[in-house]
């Protein structure tokens, strides 16, 4: 994303922080990839991590790399369904966006095999569906 921090520039001896402007906020917003493309998003708050979300996150990251998949692995806060942690939201273009629950490392691999590569939703792990 933005390669240079808008702001910090040395002027003479002092370090002066240039102020961010409204235009720069707009620019950051416009540049955001948002929800486009293929991605998985892991809930990484305390209750997610307590349930093993960090392992799930690492597994997914490793899988995407190993198998050379163009899928962003992102992290987010608590989506609220704490009873089903770790939660992983999966968006693959042309498929419904779903949140899988109780995703341990094995299920994470299953998601890659079946959902991302096989274009099939997994049975018995969906905890939320985003319409559309």
């Amino acid at each position: 994303m933005t390669s240079v921090l808008p702001g910090s520039a040395a002027v003479g001896e002092e370090l002066v922080m240039a102020k961010i402007t409204k235009e720069q906020l707009d620019g950051i917003k416009a540049q955001s990839v948002g929800d486009s493309g293929n991605w998985v998003r892991v809930g990484m708050s305390t209750c997610g991590i307590a349930a093993g979300a960090d392992k799930t996150f690492e597994k997914l990251t490793a899988q995407m790399k190993e198998r050379e998949l163009e899928v962003r692995v992102e992290r987010c806060g608590c989506a609220g369904k704490c009873f089903a942690e770790p939660l992983v939201e999966v968006a693959v273009e042309g498929m419904p966006v779903v949140i899988y629950g109780r995703v341990d490392e094995n299920v994470a691999v299953e998601i890659v095999d079946k959902h991302i590569l096989g274009k099939k939703l997994l049975n018995d792990h969906i905890y939320s569906v985003k319409a559309g």
């Binding site: 917003k29 955001s32 708050s45 992102e74 987010c76 608590c78 989506a79 939660l87 939201e89």
Partner: peptide, 22 residues
Amino acid sequence: LRNCGVIDPERIEDYIAQDGYF
């Protein structure tokens, strides 16, 4: 909770993209 479970809390750009600091 509008952004909880949606954005990466460790990236200010994600917050700004959701109208953060507007």
